[in-house]
Structure formats: C-alpha cells, structure tokens
Amino acid sequence: MTFRLIEIKPCDNTFFRDGNQFNKEISKIIRSKNTAYPSVFFGAIFTAILSENDDFRKIFFENNMYDHEKILEIGQVYLFNRKNRECYIKAPMDLFMDERNNITLGNFKKNNKYNSLKYKYILESPVNTKFNRLENMYININDIYDGYFKKQEFALELVDENQIFIKNYKVGIGINKENKTTEEGAFYQVEYTEFNNNEWSYIVEYNINYDYLNNNYKDVEIKKLDSGYLKLGGENKACQYKHLKNTYIEKFRNQEQLSGNLYKIIFTSETYFNENINDYLEKNNIIILGMSNGKPLYIGGYDMKGKKGNPRVMYKGFSAGTVILVEIKKDYNIQDIKEIIKCGNTKGFNNCIVLREEF
C-alpha cells in the first residue's frame, strides 16, 4: 500500500479532547491534547473528501451504508517542521535525559528482584539518578534507524513539546439547563493548543481504497485531496491542507530490520486492543518480556451514523512512544508483526516500528 501525504496547518488554536470525562466538581480545567487522536484526522479527511466530491457524497448518504472505514485508511501522523522539512514522532519511552540534556538509552534487564511484576525483564534507569525518563519529547524520524537502533544516543535529535506547542485558556461558565442561570461554582477553563510558530504543522498519511470504491460505487469518480480547507477537532477549527511529498517519510517507511527472535516494538501512535494485550499477542506467538509505558489512555469517539453520533466503546490504550520488548515464536517478517499490532484498524491507531534487539 502506498500512502499519500497531506499537510494540515491549523489556522487558529485547536481543541483536542482526550477520553477522560470532565467533572467540574473535581477539576476546573478541560485539557486539550497536543495532537488529536488519529481518528480525528480520519474524520476531518473523510469529510473533506465528501466535500470535494459531490456525486460521491450524494450516493454515500443515500446508500446509508456508512462504510467509510472501508473507503479510507489513515497511517502515521507526524509533526512537520516546514523550515527544515524534518518530521517527528513521539520519542521512545526507554530514553532518559539529564538536566544538561544528555541522552542515554535505558536497558532491559532480567527481573530477579520483583516477584510482583509480571514481565521477565524490567527497564533499568541509569545509575545517575539525575536522569529522567522521556515522555513529552519528540524524535526526528531520521534518527530512529541510525542513532536509536544503533544505540548512538549522541546522534539523536529530540525536541521538547514546549518548543512546539503553547497553551491558551478561555473561561467557561456552567449554565443550569432548567432555569438558564449560572450554576454556583461552575467557572472553568478550557485549554487550547496551538503551534508556537508558523514552522510547525501536521503531516498525515492516508489511502483511499479505490478497489472497494470501484466495486461498490461504480461510475463515481473521487478526486484526491490537493489543497483546500478542512475542519479539525472540537469546535471544528479551520485548517489549511495541501498534498506534499517527503523523502524522509518514504525512507522511514521502507526501513527493514529482521533477524533473531528478540525485538522492540515501539508504538508510534496511540494503540489499543479489544482484549488484554498479553493474551492477544500470545495468541499470535508474540510474548511480551518487558514494557516501558506511561499512564493509560482512554480512547472512545463517535460513529457517523445518527444525528448526534453514537458513542463508541471506551478502550484503555497505550500512548505513542510505548516500548515493548518481545520474543517472536513464529517465522514472521516485519510486515506480519505490524499487521498483528494493527488489528485491522483503519483510523490511524496501532502504528508501530519493529527493531531487532540485542543484549
């Protein structure tokens, strides 16, 4: 499959909710994610396709099939620096940095100390306690297969989220639905996210399934997205989009590393499974030996069908940058492993890279 690239540049600040429910009795701030869940980009791009193709839009809604997940697939979402043309993803969570910005790679060691932990290996932090694990930084994709894979930490380019995003706040007031008056203590803040300068934007991989369209929407032509505007995230903020090519992404997608049976799988997007991750992977002959991850995510969303949309099942997921050390019990190639992690998801979740690991 060949993904097409689209650059998306918000015209204003954005509002990307996570899956956590807002409770005004507990919190006074509604948080906004730096980058929307990939399903948000899926919805924005598919809506743009409908907007740009009148005949297709008419038939799509008349058929009432809501087969959008068979028509469109989202791949990786990147942060893109327009000035240097470089692309970034969340940094792997087995990297550590000290106060002088020295970077070191943590090591998975056999767990001989903690009987309560379920994995055979644990990630050991550097002996120097001034090193902290990275969770809010981004890595240049050019450095994944060179500096990171080869354990040449000095060659890594990392960017802190605060160098890319800034937060703005607006005050909201809770209104009583019955008498339309202000509720007592119902003041809250809404957090908005924007890039800190015009150098930054998003790049999204997407693919239109023309084979499916030819079989189910005969004689309907769908134009690819070249340039225009779309709406993204909460409050439908306007964004400018345009098609582009990027040689760094082409190189990143075509890297292959395969030999042995021990690997690191690094989630490069938010990831969730319909069942326990250990059970799911073990059924597919992949055994988790160790993991380095952050706080769990709660991933939900809405279906297109219906006036207001039907809420989806809420899943407990893993953030981008999560690293799992695995043993492969079957003769898989890299693409086989990626497809197992992908679980058939077309909305941009469950992307990963797979690297050979040596001790």
Rank of each mutant, 00 (worst) to 15 (best):
D18C: 11
V40P: 01
E25T: 14
Y66D: 11
F80R: 05
N20W: 06
C87I: 07
F60G: 00
F41G: 00
A44F: 04
N23R: 09
K90E: 05
L95P: 04
N81Q: 09
F60I: 08
I30C: 00
E73Q: 11
Y66R: 12
F61A: 10
Q21K: 14
D18W: 03
N101E: 14
S39V: 13
T47M: 08
L50F: 12
S51C: 10
F80K: 05
P38T: 09
A91M: 11
R57V: 09
D98Q: 12
M97F: 01
F56Q: 07
V40F: 08
R31P: 01
A48E: 14
F96H: 01
N64S: 12
I45G: 00
E25I: 13
L79G: 03
E73R: 14
K90G: 06
V77S: 05
N84K: 10
N84F: 11
F56K: 06
D67S: 14
Y37E: 13
S39P: 08
F96L: 05
D67L: 02
E52I: 10
L72K: 03
A44I: 02
L72Y: 08
N102H: 12
S51K: 15
A48I: 07
I26K: 13
R100P: 02
M97C: 13
K90Y: 09
K58M: 07
M65Q: 12
L79A: 03
G43K: 04
R82E: 15
P92L: 10
K83Y: 14
F41R: 00
S51M: 11
Y66P: 04
P92A: 03
Y88P: 07
F80C: 05
V77A: 04
R82L: 15
N20A: 07
M65H: 14
N34P: 05
N23D: 15
S32R: 00
E69R: 09
M93T: 02
S32D: 03
L95I: 11
R100W: 13
G43H: 06
R57T: 13
R100Y: 15
I74D: 01
R100G: 15
C87S: 15
F60E: 00
P38E: 11
P38C: 11
G43C: 03
G75P: 02
K70E: 13
L50M: 09
P38G: 10
G19D: 03
I89R: 04
Y66I: 07
D94R: 06
A91P: 02
I89S: 01
F41Q: 00
I29W: 06
F42S: 00
N81G: 11
C87E: 07
A36T: 06
L95V: 03
D54P: 07
A91D: 02
A48T: 10
N64A: 10
E69T: 11
N20P: 07
F56G: 03
I59S: 06
E99M: 12
E73V: 05
L79V: 07
D55A: 12
M97P: 05
K24P: 04
D94P: 03
D94L: 06
A91T: 15
N34R: 02
R85T: 13
D94H: 15
N34G: 14
Y88M: 13
F46D: 06
A44R: 01
L95H: 04
F61M: 08
T47E: 12
N102R: 12
K90M: 10
K58H: 08
I59P: 00
K28I: 07
F22T: 08
F60R: 02
G75M: 05
